[in-house]
């Protein structure tokens, strides 16, 4: 696959990551595509608008949050536990009018990722508070599903009793202690135009069925909440990716 090139210039940003490491990533990812690559500090990048940026963050809370709050960038990839950046999957999706985020499951479970993405995209596109709240809720619910039921492979056990709630929580902690499951990735791709925002969520679980036969009728349940906030919800084969469209 060819690297999308709406711009000829890509900026690689990072906070707290040695430039030598970023240089290695740049050489590996971009050199073969003939793009100009500049190495910038994330905090110096805020005012630039003519380039696409790939923000590479560590897995500490401060790094993650700093990267998420950077306004003018197209992708954030969390480097956690020595993971390397995949050459084909992530960077090929970088294009104008889009943002990509990729997190390990543990980060999604332990940080308010949806809140930060919603803040970021709202600042970037000057969205109103109502739409920001919808984006946050939709992402929060879908990321929780992707993490708990997708990547951590936890079934939909009953949480309608105190014992059930405690058992579910114990199961989450147990699964997160499994490094193989905790390091599985969740990717959020957001594309926009003047009319809509399109959110795509992918996880590394075994998939699910979007059939309404699998939803219960309670209006406060996750999928019911999501569908009440958006124009459409659809899913590819085996539930991947989940695609959600919101009106701007």
């Amino acid at each position: 696959m060819a690297l999308a090139k709406p711009c000829q210039s890509y900026v690689l940003c990072g906070d707290g990551i040695p430039n030598l490491f970023l240089s290695d990533i740049a050489r590996n990812l971009f050199a073969c595509h003939g793009c100009e690559v500049r190495i910038e500090d994330i905090f110096k990048y805020h005012e630039q608008t003519d380039s696409l940026a790939l923000v590479v963050g560590g897995n500490t809370k401060s790094n993650s949050l700093a990267a998420l709050f950077a306004r003018s960038f197209s992708g954030y990839y969390e480097l956690a536990n020595g993971n390397e950046l995949p050459k084909d999957v992530f960077v090929n999706g970088l294009e104008k009018n889009s943002v990509i985020y990729s997190f390990v499951t543990k980060t999604v479970c332990q940080h308010s990722v949806a809140q930060h993405i919603a803040n970021n995209i709202s600042l970037k596109l000057a969205l109103n508070q109502d739409l920001q709240e919808k984006i946050e809720l939709v992402l929060h619910e879908t990321l929780a599903n992707a993490a708990l039921h997708g990547n951590l492979e936890i079934g939909h056990c009953a949480k309608d009793s105190l014992d059930g709630l405690e058992a579910f929580d114990t199961e989450v902690e147990k699964k997160l202690s499994n490094d193989g499951l905790a390091k599985r990735r969740i990717e959020v791709r957001i594309h926009w135009d003047d009319e809509i925002l399109k959110l795509k969520i992918l996880d590394q679980g075994s998939g699910f069925s979007l059939s309404k036969d699998n939803w219960d009728g309670m209006p406060w349940r996750g999928m019911n909440l999501i569908s009440s906030q958006v124009v459409s919800v659809s899913a590819g084969e085996n539930g991947q990716p989940l695609t959600i469209i919101l009106k701007r």
């Binding site: 809140q115 946050e136 809720l137 929060h140 619910e141 929780a144 949480k159 309608d160 009793s161 105190l162 709630l165 406060w220 349940r221 996750g222 909440l225």
Partner: peptide
């Protein structure tokens, strides 16, 4: 400031309890 489906479900649980 913010509530999700799990939070709403826990209010239902509190009401039942």
């Amino acid at each position: 400031e913010f509530i999700d489906s799990a939070g709403l479900g826990m209010f239902i649980l509190a009401n039942d309890t």
